Amino acid sequence: MKTARRFTVIIEQDEDGIYVAEIPQIPGCHTQAGDVPTLMERIREAAELCASELNEIPHLEFIGLQQIDVLV
Rank of each mutant, 00 (worst) to 15 (best):
I11V: 15
G34E: 11
D14Q: 06
G17P: 08
F7P: 02
T31V: 04
V9Y: 05
D35C: 04
D14I: 11
R6A: 06
E45D: 15
I10Y: 10
Q32R: 12
I11S: 02
E41G: 06
D16C: 01
T38D: 12
F7E: 08
G17A: 07
V36C: 08
R42L: 13
I11M: 08
I26K: 04
T8F: 00
R44N: 11
I18W: 07
H30P: 01
L39Y: 02
D14W: 13
I10G: 09
E12R: 14
V36Y: 04
P27Q: 13
D16S: 11
G28Y: 14
I43Q: 01
L39V: 07
A47I: 03
I18S: 06
D16V: 03
Q32H: 15
R6M: 08
I23P: 02
P24M: 12
I11K: 02
D35I: 00
V9T: 13
Q13H: 09
Y19P: 01
R44V: 10
I10K: 12
P37Y: 11
D35K: 05
T31A: 01
D16M: 01
A33V: 15
E12C: 05
V9E: 00
M40R: 13
P27A: 11
D16W: 02
T8E: 03
A33C: 08
P37M: 10
V36S: 05
R42G: 09
M40A: 11
E15S: 12
A21N: 13
Q25P: 01
F7M: 13
G34W: 02
E22F: 14
A46Q: 14
D14C: 08
R42N: 13
R44P: 04
P24K: 09
P24E: 12
A47N: 00
G28M: 06
T8R: 02
I11L: 13
A46N: 02
A21L: 06
G17D: 09
I26F: 05
I11R: 01
E15M: 07
M40S: 03
P37W: 08
R6W: 10
R44H: 14
V20I: 15
T8S: 15
E22V: 01
I23A: 08
H30T: 00
G28D: 13
G34Y: 11
E45Q: 13
R42V: 00
F7G: 05
